[in-house]
C-alpha cells in the first residue's frame, strides 16, 4: 500500500440508490434462471449444467462484492485483503476435491 491516502469522501464515491436497485434486479434474474434450470431435466442431465450454475453463482458473488460491498469503488488495500485470502481459499477447495477424487485433472 502506498501513502496516496484518499480522503474518506473520495474513497466512498458510491453509486446511487438506482444502481443498487438495478443490481438487485440482476441478482434476482440470475437466481430465477438458476432455479428454473434446476426444474428442466434435460438441462440437469447436460454436462454444462454444473459449470453454468457455478458461473452464475460466481457472477452473483462478484456483483455483491463489487457493488454492495463497494469493493469496486474502494481502496485497493481492501481488494488485496479480500482477493488474496479468496484465492487461497478457492485453491484449497480445489486441491481438497482433487485429493478426495471428487474432481480429476
Amino acid at each position: 500500500m502506498s501513502h496516496d491516502a484518499k480522503s474518506p469522501a473520495q474513497a466512498h464515491a458510491h453509486p446511487t440508490g438506482a444502481t443498487y436497485l438495478k443490481v438487485a434486479v440482476i441478482l434476482t434474474v440470475i437466481t430465477i434462471v438458476e432455479v428454473w434450470a434446476y426444474y428442466i431435466p434435460a438441462l440437469v442431465a447436460s454436462p454444462l449444467f454444473n459449470p453454468s450454475l457455478i458461473i452464475m453463482s460466481a457472477a452473483k458473488f462478484a456483483i455483491v462484492v463489487l457493488f454492495y460491498m463497494h469493493l469496486k469503488y474502494d481502496h485497493k488495500l481492501f481488494k488485496a485483503l479480500f482477493t488474496g485470502p479468496l484465492i487461497i481459499a478457492g485453491a484449497t477447495i480445489l486441491a481438497l476435491l482433487f485429493l478426495f477424487a471428487k474432481i480429476s485433472l
Binding site: 438458476e34 432455479v35 434450470a37 434446476y38 440437469v44 449444467f49 454444473n50 450454475l53 457455478i54 452464475m56 453463482s57 452473483k60 458473488f61 455483491v64
Partner: peptide, 11 residues
C-alpha cells in the same frame, strides 16, 4: 449464494 448453488441446486 455459494451454498445455495453448491448444496441445493447441483445434484
Amino acid at each position: 449464494i455459494v451454498i445455495f448453488t453448491l448444496i441445493y441446486l447441483i445434484q
